[in-house]
Amino acid sequence: MSSAAIKLDQVTKTFDGKVIAVDGVTLDIEAGEFFSLLGPSGCGKTTSLRMIAGFEQPDSGRVHVGGQDITDVPVHKRDMGMVFQSYALFPHRTVAENVAFGLRMRDVPKPEIARRVASALAQVALTGLEARKPGQLSGGQQQRVALARALVIEPRVLLCDEPLGALDRKLRQQMQFELKELQRRLGVTLVFVTHDQEEALAMSDRIAVMNQGKVEQIGSPTEIYEKPRTRFVADFIGEINLLDDGPKPRALRPEKIRLGPAAEARLAGTIETANFVGGATLYRVRAADNRAFLVRETHAGERAPRAAGDAVGLSWNDTDTVSLEG
C-alpha cells in the first residue's frame, strides 16, 4: 500500500462568516506517519480533518497530498479512506456490500472485488459476517467494518474522526492496539482526530495539539508530554503542576516530585488526599504557602505508604521543570 505525505499550508476556515474554526494552520504530515490532531471540542481538529477529506473548502490556504495541491479536488476524487465516530455504515447494505462499495465505485472487476473484500474482512477478523446488515452487529464489529471499508480501496491516506469514541473503555483499548498494528503493517498515512490525550499519546508517531483554531505544539508523544511548550498543552496533557514563581511560568509533572521528610525538602506540606491508581498513588499536597501540588509516587505493594494528614516535604530538580511560553 502506498502512502502519501499531507501538507496543510496556512489553512483558515470560518463558519457563517464569523466563527473562526481553523486559523492559519500549517501541518506537515509525513508519509506513513500516525499523526493525531488532539484538542478539546471546538479546537478545529475535526474541521482540519474535513478539509483534508474535502468536505470543507478552506477560506484561504492550500491542502497538498503526495505533493499535489488538492484544494480544489472534489471529495470523491481524493482517494482517501475515512472512518467516522458514528461508523456511517450503509444500513441498507450487508457487511460485504459495505466493504465492496469503494471498489464498485472504482469499477473494479467483480472477482477482484470478492477477493479483496474477503481479505479486508479477514484483516479485521470479520470473516463469516459478510451477509449481516450493520444493524445486526455490535459496536466494535461495526467499527471494524468501517475500517475494512476504508482500507479495502488501499487509500494513500486514512482519516479517522474520533473512531473509537463510541466504544466502551476496554474495547477501545483493544481497538487502539489493533488500529496501530494495522497502520504499521500497511504503512498508510493515518490522521487521527481525538480529544482523548491518553489515546493520542498511546498511538501516535506525532501529535498536533490544537486550541481555538490554532496549533499549539507539534511533536512526538514524549516531547508533548515531557516538554509542553505552552500552558495550554501542559494543562491538557496529563496532570501538571504549574509554578508561577519565576519570571516565566514553569510546568512540573507530578512524578517528578519526590516526597520525603520536611526538613530536607524545598517545601513543607500536608497530604490532603491520596488516590491509589494501581502501582502508584496520586497525592494532593497542600504546601505551607497554600499552593496545591499533585504528586505521583510509584511504590511496590498495594498500599500507599502515606495517608491524608501526613506531613511531608516536597523536592524536585530544577532540570525537571519546563518553561512555558504563556
Binding site: H76, K77, R78, S86, A146, L159
Partner: peptide, 24 residues
C-alpha cells in the same frame, strides 16, 4: 455522515444520491 462516507469512497454526488440517499 453516511453520504459523506460514500463520497469519500469515490461516489460522485449523483451516485451518492442513487446509491445511498434515495434507498434510505
Amino acid at each position: 455522515r453516511i453520504e459523506e462516507a460514500a463520497a469519500v469512497l469515490g461516489a460522485s454526488p449523483t451516485r451518492v444520491f442513487f446509491e445511498v440517499t434515495l434507498p434510505l
